[in-house]
Design a protein around this nucleic acid. Sequence first.
DNA 1: TATGAATGAGCGTTCATTCAT
DNA 2: GATGAATGAACGCTCATTCAT
Lengths: 196, 196, 196, 196
Amino acid sequence: MKRNKPKYKQIIDAAVIVIADNGYHQAQVSKIAKQAGVADGTIYLYFKNKEDILISLFQEKMGLFVEKIQDVIAGKQKAAEKLLVMIENHFKILSDDHHLAIVTQLELRQSNKDLRLKINDVLKEYLLLMDDILQEGIDNGEFDSKLSIRLARQMIFGTIDETVTTWVMNDQKYDLVKQAPAVHHLLLQGCGQKGE
Amino acid sequence: MKRNKPKYKQIIDAAVIVIADNGYHQAQVSKIAKQAGVADGTIYLYFKNKEDILISLFQEKMGLFVEKIQDVIAGKQKAAEKLLVMIENHFKILSDDHHLAIVTQLELRQSNKDLRLKINDVLKEYLLLMDDILQEGIDNGEFDSKLSIRLARQMIFGTIDETVTTWVMNDQKYDLVKQAPAVHHLLLQGCGQKGE
Amino acid sequence: MKRNKPKYKQIIDAAVIVIADNGYHQAQVSKIAKQAGVADGTIYLYFKNKEDILISLFQEKMGLFVEKIQDVIAGKQKAAEKLLVMIENHFKILSDDHHLAIVTQLELRQSNKDLRLKINDVLKEYLLLMDDILQEGIDNGEFDSKLSIRLARQMIFGTIDETVTTWVMNDQKYDLVKQAPAVHHLLLQGCGQKGE
Amino acid sequence: MKRNKPKYKQIIDAAVIVIADNGYHQAQVSKIAKQAGVADGTIYLYFKNKEDILISLFQEKMGLFVEKIQDVIAGKQKAAEKLLVMIENHFKILSDDHHLAIVTQLELRQSNKDLRLKINDVLKEYLLLMDDILQEGIDNGEFDSKLSIRLARQMIFGTIDETVTTWVMNDQKYDLVKQAPAVHHLLLQGCGQKGE
DNA sequence: TATGAATGAGCGTTCATTCAT
DNA sequence: GATGAATGAACGCTCATTCAT
């Protein structure tokens, strides 16, 4: 399995750095190879083509993302709490890795439609996590019983994503994680939070 | 003034169609010229370069956007109503022009960072409209007095944008405009709507 | 006759200025038209094409050149004297018109082979003047009787031309005309000048 | 070192042929690549850009030129003799390579000012060789003690260059090398040669 | 005569991918 | 497995010239 060989991850990490530093359109395969310390041709022993590097990058990083968030959610009872730690961790992971933040919020969006559709597939697992939380919230009466899960998920993801993008575009100069509670508050209200 | 000459708009409309049909990276200048029914060189009598076509496209279309929405907002008293017609019109304009929807939600995002920064400048006017509505809602007691305008605006724009993008990615197969009231409801709650 | 209409000369003078200021490859027809104060299309009422402007320019200016030099030569008896005034006037005319000097020594040489062959035709009249002086000098015993006229003419023209080109390349920062006597001395010796 | 790889010289030789056959402005990179038997892209593994091919061409060929002439000069005692073998070899090298003669005398002069300034740098070494010979001739009493080295060098180079150019323009139809003694005789006299 | 908007052919350069070693 | 030299398709832009007014 190529995914477990050291050069596989080595190339993906190189790609993140090269894309963050040079931008998507200046991230040539040869630059990634150089950064990874391998020959250009070696890339093609681990990846089908350049697009495959980017999809794999997204899968690999988003996998960690989902894993981490599943972890922290597991420890919480209420949907509202789960939503909070999800937002916090989403913000924290990207705060902790400046390169990754630039790559996911700005650079990877320059990829073509096909690639973005594939990236969306990867995102689905994450979106399903949100759906689970929302369903739970509705079921246990935390949220509005008539809430549309799809719309609510679009609101949550759209808001989180827009918040991170604005932060990256402002050169990450304020503390993103500190915004989590306020964003959480907004979204909870949007979901028609009941109770005090 | 070039902007008022017929070929100016002709070329921009051609660009929208060509980009929607072929994708951003396959929208060669020669294709746009052909679609517009002019020679390649004619493009350069009206635009400085290819990037200039795209920026102008965005300015031109987003200008209509802002104008139209300013219009419909003017007729409304309450912030909540204004927000509703804003969402409705946002959805309607893109619903009515499938090509434009594809271009703004998918294709233009593939442009490089420079172009996107310029596009963001154009967007600002639209975002300021939102800020005005939010401020008004806070002032007249419709919304939570402690609402952060920046965060709320990110929620509104993020949600609207994500909703449209999801719709476009699903090949525009359901009625987007019909979603407006539900989205509006969500966002109003997010803003801490008061009143009966 | 187009040559006598005011716009004909107007365009040629504009070409000299535009070429001197912008260089041969940046001297577009539209720039020349603008400098001449006429429309692009008007150029083509007076000249067949762009090349025709340049050939005409050379003919016109070189005509003045030959005329002037024929004039000053007429007043001299000896071949050596004629050669001196020829060199002096060659240097003087180009010293007096910086633009023209740049155009003939640097810019026009960037034209293609065809154009340069035509320019050479124009030059011929000037070279024939030199031949006449040389023949005269041989006939009246001033120069070596075995002197090859063709070679001597190549020496004279080559030396004069190289001297002017070096001066132009050095930004015309020294006095070219002052060099005439020394150049004359060199060339006379080369021609095997007899007598004291 | 790229200069020693076979393809480097292969491309330069191809450039000489293509430029001589098609003219400077019709010497497209793709033509040069085809003539060299390599892919277009390969050119750019050895040269920074098209201009770099031309500068390198000049350096490479002019280097051989200077080397060869330094060689033959070394065997001679007197300045006059050195001048003769210099002229002979200058003529011989260009006589032996018709393509090169066309390229240096006609085609390369069409390059823009920047390129020609760089070419001039390369030429400088050759001109310094001439200066050395002239200084030597003055020092050992062969030449006029009051001779201006700069002017004399301009005469020598101008005459040689004009002679070769005339020969090339006449389609190289006579024997250039045979002209060397006569040209030499002229130039020696120009330098004020003493003694028999 | 004079205009100037419109034309459209033409080319240097990049870079993902291959394959002989 | 690993290399890196070689490949070649693809495209934005310029500008001399035309021609309807």
